[in-house]
Simulated scan of single mutants.
Amino acid sequence: MTSTTARVALVTGGSGGIGSSVVERLVQDGFAVAVHYSGNASRAEELAAKVRGTGGQAITVGGDVADEAAMAAGFDTIEEEWGGLDVVVNTAGIMLLSPIATLDLADLDRMHRTNIRGTFVVSQLAANRLRAGGALINFSTTVTRTRFPTYGGYVASKAAVESMTLVLARELRGRDITVNAVAPGPTATPLFLDGKDQQTVDELAKAAPLERLGTPDDVAEAVAFLAGPARWVNGQVVYVNGGLA
């Protein structure tokens, strides 16, 4: 086990668009960070190497977030490396868009496995492993409020995430662990931009009063707030959307 005085964070989906920004932002705040990946080990290791190259502490852990054994092994690796875990940020998720009437139920099952079961598995482990003073930050979406067409299956999974997050915050009474969800609005990531034409992207960019898309760094700032100084913010869904809804 490596001796460290840093707080320790796990970022699921840490090699993704928002996840990688969260990793880099938490490192700025002095966290030692485990970069989780499911399918792209090389991208996760590249990010971890970048962190180490600038003097930070980072390792990678792999596994399907919906696989409780794989994720438990990841938590074990982090505890063996750094002695404990203080913050879990659950950015891992998939988004498959279709009108409800024509959504392929296999796609629905895929989203629910990753977004609901995966969040539940990681939240359950966090509830049992986080140290006092810790934080769990799950990810929802502003579309639970804006109700854009074609997002029905995705929103169903994220509404479940919000509900389980708010329940868990109350179940951890007395543990000094905060549990919140971040709900980004339209954010310029590959996940969001995939399959959208330029006109659609431009319209979404103008929808918020700030008249632009969010960036992964915008979302990471909110995560850093919840992971660090925001000890009185608990059991909340924080909408990071430029005033869209």
Rank of each mutant, 00 (worst) to 15 (best):
D107Y: 04
D107M: 06
D107L: 08
D107I: 01
L108D: 09
L108P: 00
L108A: 13
L108W: 15
D109G: 04
D109I: 06
D109Y: 09
M111S: 02
H112Q: 13
H112L: 10
R113G: 02
R113M: 05
T114L: 08
T114G: 03
T114Y: 00
N115W: 01
I116Y: 05
R117V: 13
R117Q: 10
G118Q: 07
G118C: 04
G118L: 04
G118W: 00
T119L: 00
T119W: 00
T119M: 02
T119H: 05
T119Y: 00
F120H: 09
V121W: 01
V121F: 06
V121I: 14
V122K: 00
V122A: 10
V122T: 15
V122N: 07
V122P: 05
S123I: 05
S123K: 02
S123A: 15
S123Q: 14
Q124N: 14
Q124T: 15
L125N: 10
L125F: 06
A126D: 13
A127K: 09
A127C: 07
A127Q: 07
A127E: 11
A127P: 10
A127L: 04
N128A: 15
R129D: 03
R129A: 10
R129T: 14
R129F: 01
L130Y: 08
L130N: 10
R131I: 06
R131T: 13
R131Y: 03
R131K: 15
A132K: 14
G133Q: 07
G133M: 14
G133D: 13
G134R: 14
G134I: 14
G134L: 11
G134S: 12
G134P: 04
G134K: 08
A135H: 08
A135E: 01
A135P: 07
A135Q: 07
L136A: 05
L136Y: 15
I137A: 11
I137Q: 13
N138M: 09
N138G: 12
F139W: 01
F139M: 15
F139C: 09
F139Q: 01
S140T: 10
S140R: 04
T141P: 03
T141S: 13
T141K: 01
T142H: 06
T142P: 00
T142F: 03
T142R: 11
V143A: 09
V143C: 02
T144R: 06
T144Q: 06
T144A: 08
T144G: 02
T144S: 11
T144F: 03
T144N: 05
T144L: 06
T144W: 04
T146L: 12
T146P: 02
R147I: 12
F148A: 15
F148H: 13
P149K: 11
T150L: 12
T150M: 12
T150Q: 11
Y151T: 15
Y151D: 12
G152Q: 09
G152N: 05
G152V: 07
G152S: 10
G152H: 05
G153D: 02
G153S: 10
Y154I: 07
Y154Q: 08
Y154N: 02
Y154A: 03
Y154K: 02
V155G: 01
V155N: 04
V155T: 11
V155A: 10
V155P: 02
V155S: 07
A156S: 14
A156W: 02
A156P: 05
A156Q: 06
A156E: 00
S157D: 08
K158I: 12
K158N: 11
